[in-house]
Nucleic acid binder design. Sequence first.
DNA 1: ACCTGAACACCGTTCAAGT
DNA 2: ACCTGAACACCGTTCAAGT
Lengths: 220, 220
Amino acid sequence: MADGAGDGPARAPLTRERVLGCAVALADAKGLGALTMRSLAQELGVKPMSLYHHVANKDAILDGIVDMVFAEMELPSPGGDWRAELARRATSARGVLRRHPWAIALMESRAVPGPANLRHHDAVLGTLRKAGFSVPMTAHAYALLDAYVYGFAVQEAALPFGPDSPPDVTASIAAQISPDDYPHLVELATTHAMQPGYDFGDEFKFGLGVILDALAAALP
Amino acid sequence: MADGAGDGPARAPLTRERVLGCAVALADAKGLGALTMRSLAQELGVKPMSLYHHVANKDAILDGIVDMVFAEMELPSPGGDWRAELARRATSARGVLRRHPWAIALMESRAVPGPANLRHHDAVLGTLRKAGFSVPMTAHAYALLDAYVYGFAVQEAALPFGPDSPPDVTASIAAQISPDDYPHLVELATTHAMQPGYDFGDEFKFGLGVILDALAAALP
DNA sequence: ACCTGAACACCGTTCAAGT
DNA sequence: ACCTGAACACCGTTCAAGT
């Protein structure tokens, strides 16, 4: 009982890693809006001002958690089969962005990329270069692949249906969309997207295949 | 002088349209962070509480300005050449999202799509269906096209270089990226992306062409 | 060195009051 | 009907103080 009061274990010392890790967990659980210096401090069992000894300010926390998200993504190995490596990387990135849907909004507003972000994109570029793409073609391929991965995450996060949204919400939105005003949306929804077994996430493979096929055809 | 004090024209009456229009202008000029009920009211020459007579709350404003952004995008005509129509729509959407880069972050966090959003996507689906794509293939094409457009906008907004960022910022970031740690990023930047005349926006055409070619090949 | 209490200038929003 | 003043429960952050 040398720790002082309480029957719990000694509180781990506050570190930048613990602050950022808790911030990611809080954003995952309750959304970016619930991530405040005050709520974060409470979650860590500490007073708000203590956080400022480990991070410069809230912006530094936002930069930090975006880079933690990049760090979760599997890197492609420039050595292996470039198509398989880029597919694995894209699939991993999609999964990561699905687990942390708030990250997209931050990526777009943070100016300075973190080290995990830079390492990630350097590995993608390296894989393309080693596969034999020219520098200009690598730029094309990089922009296309990344746009697809990020954009798919945006779509998935914005979907009003899917496994993450409760069925009653889906139904109430569907009821407001009149077939007279939006015939093609209603057609797609009723005859396809709302059928049992449909998973929007499966669309990811199609688009990824299209892109990788086109890149393979552009190899010298 | 029946208007009362002042030499300016009579103040236009507050309306939902005027509130949303001013909110878009404020977000464009100073970013989403500067869009507060109080700053918006001041911009409109009114007290903060007056806004609540025209919009339910700030969330309604955010929903409203996202839909205004969708309303700016050119719709494809289901009648015409589907490839040209979808290319025009994608190019227009990219331009709109470039003018309103804050919109991406909102799209991802707003659950309920507005009428302009629905109309826009219904037109895209209609164009694909009229071109002869099956319903499942239309779902594939829609997901791929939209992911690309949104994702390209995310990339473009997150770019630390480009025509919108001051050259000195670009240079200071470049100086921090060591060729030892990120050799392929440095190669791409120095031999290609930072060359005079390079415009990241030009990458858009390449990816769009790849996608539309692949869709054309998938037509029955 | 690490943590904190009190305070400041902000938020969105409610409620009761003005015209 | 439309607008507003005062107030409430929040923010991020600074500064001076504690151990």
